[in-house]
């Protein structure tokens, strides 16, 4: 169980809904992962089209909470308007706030992010900011009114996993009471377990599951890894040592010489 902004969630895994081979596989992957929050987006609808309706029916049938995003927005204005449109359509004040600053790395524009976060928090949104692992930016986002942070561990879709463990440790350690969800860059279940072992509260991922050869199996694997990492964090992880320490007692050892 996981308490997030006053809501109790059964799973610490949040799952994206893009890039699956079919809607049926998406639905099965969501179920297999055990997730209770899925991310969705808004895109242009064709005249007379019903793509949005079909997708929305599928998502509602999953029975999970919805975390709409502002993916693809490159300006504060775009992100704020998209967030407001999402609130109307999806009926939630939760918003995964993305303000992209670089086309190649999809790195957040952290200056625009803080500005947009302030506007949306003042307007009653619960802002989940997709940010870097920068400590000072995290501080500014909290000052802007964010109650949760979503640092990346690597660029979106890169599957690199946590490339800067020291920065993640630092950001986690500085704000022990702020819920933090590692978002973007996870490639394999061991990456998810690693960041959960560091004490992050949850992970959000999409591509690593959707583009796996078997998305349903991978969704299940990520669900287990997140649980394992969290339980390990709460169980006191042994610190590494430079020397060997025998695990079998040496006392009472037979002598045959």
């Amino acid at each position: 169980m996981f308490e997030l902004l006053g809501t109790t969630l059964p799973s610490r895994l949040l799952l994206g809904t893009a890039q699956y081979p079919s809607p049926a596989v998406l639905a099965d992957a969501v179920k297999a992962s055990g997730t209770s929050v899925v991310t969705v987006s808004l895109r242009r609808e064709m005249a007379g089209g019903r793509a949005g309706e079909n997708f929305w029916s599928l998502i509602r049938a999953l029975g999970t909470r919805i975390l709409p995003n502002t993916a693809g927005c490159h300006s504060v204005k775009e992100a704020v308007t998209t967030a407001k449109m999402a609130r109307e359509v999806f009926g939630t004040n939760w918003i995964k706030l993305e303000v992209i600053g670089n086309h190649d790395t999809l790195q957040p524009d952290v200056f625009g992010l803080v500005e947009a976060a302030r506007i949306l928090c003042e307007d009653g949104f619960a802002v989940f900011p997709y940010t870097t692992d920068d400590l000072v930016v995290a501080e500014r986002l909290l000052e802007a009114g964010c109650k949760v942070l979503m640092p990346w561990c690597a660029p979106i879709g890169s599957a690199l996993g946590p490339v800067n463990i020291a920065a993640l440790r630092s950001i986690r350690g500085h704000f022990p009471d702020v819920p933090m969800i590692v978002d973007a860059g996870l490639g394999r279940p061991s990456h998810a377990a690693t960041v959960m072992e560091l004490g992050f509260d949850a992970v959000l991922l999409n591509t690593a599951v959707a583009k796996a050869a078997d998305p349903v199996g991978m969704a299940r694997a990520f669900g287990k890894a997140v649980e394992a990492g969290r339980e390990a964090f709460g169980s006191g992880i042994l610190e590494p040592r430079e020397v060997a320490v025998p695990s079998t007692p040496t006392f009472g050892r037979a002598v045959f010489a």
Binding site: T17, A18, T39, S41, R43, G52, F55, W56, I156, N206
Partner: peptide
């Protein structure tokens, strides 16, 4: 005018 509807997202 922008007319948007729910779509897959990550």
């Amino acid at each position: 005018i922008e007319i948007l509807s729910p779509m897959q997202g990550g």
